[in-house]
């Protein structure tokens, strides 16, 4: 048993070196396939991140009447916080609201002038409500119709956002769908390429395999080195991709940061946390595909 595993390993490595160019071609195909898949992954991650960034900045401002009881405001806050789609509710008191407002409109002289004319603060308490995703805003807006406090709400400032929200919704849905279709197509192509590369490799060894069987090799002894070679190639391919991906991700990270106005998208962080899962899964799937291709090709073409 030990002797034959040693021999199988030796034959697998010999196969690799003595058919160097074939091995290199197979290896490059595997690497290219993995690169494609990882590009899709990065794209998917960045889109999600972009969507999330935008969604995080969307909020509804709820302006209460000046005369509203504090208890009504409190119960509104309580109520909103109880909704699972609400990420956060920030209460802004009237003074702060006025300050924010003046700051935002300090260049608009007519507004500043009319503010000056008022001797008291026109603002009541204000709530700033944030949700997790753009979709949740409909629910939050519905919730604000609650008769317990809706009468005290002077204005809900979401009009600017509504367009953005629905546009984001459309875009993200489109991107996700397109991404899924693209991934599926690329995966299919990748699998076909790997399958065919492996098949050609086996076909090249057709005669050799016939000879091995003629001198009394069992099917297992013929197959094992080829399977092992595929496993080794898969490991090497994933290894190369892992080594290459870190510097590439670092470059991408800085490019994306520029694009998103200085916000880090956390690409490297994402791969650091999930790297084992991501590449581990890729390795397993790659091994499965290459080994199955090998077995199929051998059975189909060589009756092994």
């Amino acid at each position: 048993m030990f002797v034959s595993s040693y021999r199988i390993t030796k034959f697998a490595l010999q196969n690799f070196w003595r058919n160097f160019w074939l091995s290199i071609i197979t290896l490059s195909m595997l690497v290219l396939t993995l690169v494609t898949i990882n590009i899709l992954l990065v794209l998917n991650f960045v889109t999600n991140q972009a969507i999330q960034t935008v969604e995080e900045r969307i909020e509804v401002s709820v302006y209460f009447d000046k005369e509203v009881e504090q208890s009504t405001v409190d119960s509104a806050v309580e109520y909103l916080r109880g909704i699972s789609q609400v990420r956060d509710v920030v209460v802004v008191d009237p003074e702060k609201a006025l300050e924010n407002f003046s700051k935002n409109h300090k260049d608009d002289e007519s507004i500043m002038a009319s503010l000056e004319e008022l001797d008291s603060n026109p603002f009541g308490p204000t709530l700033i409500v944030k949700s997790y995703t753009a979709e949740d805003f409909d629910i939050i807006l519905d919730a604000l119709e609650n008769p317990e406090f809706s009468d005290f709400i002077r204005e809900k400032d979401f009009s600017d956002y509504q367009a953005i929200v629905s546009r984001i919704k459309d875009t993200t849905d489109n991107i996700r769908f397109f991404g899924m279709v693209m991934s599926a197509v690329f995966l299919l192509i990748a699998v076909l390429i790997v399958f065919n590369t492996v098949r050609i490799g086996i076909f090249i060894h057709k005669e050799e395999i016939g000879i091995m069987k003629l001198v009394g090799a069992t099917n297992w002894f013929v197959k094992a080195p080829f399977i092992l070679e595929m496993i080794i190639l898969s490991f090497v391919a994933v290894g190369i991709v892992v080594l290459v991906s870190y510097p590439v991700l670092a470059i991408l990270e800085s490019k994306f940061a520029l694009f998103f106005g200085g916000v880090q998208v956390g690409l490297i962080n994402y791969f650091e946390i999930n790297g084992l899962n991501i590449f581990g899964t890729q390795l397993m799937v790659l091994i499965a595909i290459t080994v199955i291709s090998t077995l199929l090709a051998m059975r189909r073409y060589l009756k092994v």
Binding site: S4, R7, N19, E208, I211, M212, V215, G216, A217, F221
Partner: peptide, 17 residues
């Protein structure tokens, strides 16, 4: 003969299998 194996390896192969 197996083209990627030496004379020695070709002969040894029949024993190894």
């Amino acid at each position: 003969l197996l083209p990627k194996k030496t004379v020695y390896e070709n002969v040894a192969f029949a024993l190894q299998v």
